[in-house]
Each structure stands twice: as structure tokens, then as C-alpha cells.
């Protein structure tokens, strides 16, 4: 997730990447951290507030499709990477034990 001010601090870019469906990603944010989102988004012109049913429409309306998007490992989700890290640690532990 990143927040970038530009045009002499009059505009803000909010970019985020996630695994899964757009709607539920936003829904879970609205349910769990609405106030953080409203602090960040409150300066947006016309922002209806995160609890407003029109909030998603606002986001969609201002959303810009990326011209390019590079993913080094398109098959690996964040959760998969974390799982492989755990697996790697466990494998090392196992190898250390059989050959200390």
C-alpha cells in the first residue's frame, strides 16, 4: 500500500495490491478499520465517508487502471510466500537435526 502526494501536495495517489476479490477487500477494510481510511481519505474532494454506501462507487469512479503491472511470481500469493518461508525454516531445522 502506498500514499503519494503530488502536484504540489494538492493531489494524492493511493495504490494498493492484494490477493482476492476487490469488493470483499474493501468490505473487510470498511468493517475493521473504517476510521483509518476516513483519516486518510477525508481530504478527497467529494469523499462521502467510508461508511456511506456510495463509498465504493466513489472509489471505482476515481480508479485508474494501471498501464503496466509486473509480478515476478504470479502464481504466489502473499500467504503462499509466508507458508513457503515457514516451510523453509522447518526444512532447515530438520536438516540441522539429522546432520548437526
Amino acid at each position: 500500500m502506498r500514499f503519494v502526494f503530488f502536484d504540489n501536495d494538492t493531489r494524492m495517489l493511493f495504490a494498493t495490491s492484494f490477493d482476492g476479490d476487490w469488493d470483499t477487500y474493501i468490505d473487510d477494510f470498511i468493517a475493521l478499520i473504517p476510521d483509518y481510511l476516513d483519516i486518510i481519505d477525508s481530504a478527497w474532494e467529494g469523499w462521502p465517508g467510508i461508511r456511506n454506501p456510495g463509498a465504493k462507487d466513489y472509489i471505482v469512479k476515481h480508479q485508474i487502471t494501471a498501464e503496466g503491472w509486473f509480478v515476478a511470481n504470479p502464481e504466489l500469493t502473499l500467504a503462499e510466500i509466508q507458508r513457503l518461508q515457514r516451510l523453509g525454516k522447518a526444512t532447515d531445522e530438520f536438516l540441522d537435526k539429522i546432520n548437526p
Binding site: 492484494f18 490477493d19 473487510d28 477494510f29 468493517a31 475493521l32 502473499l78
Partner: peptide
Amino acid sequence: LSRLTDVNIH
């Protein structure tokens, strides 16, 4: 869970 999730809304 592996990402921010509100179980109550699902």
C-alpha cells in the same frame, strides 16, 4: 487468517 478479514460480514 492470512489477510485482514472480518468474519462477521461473511
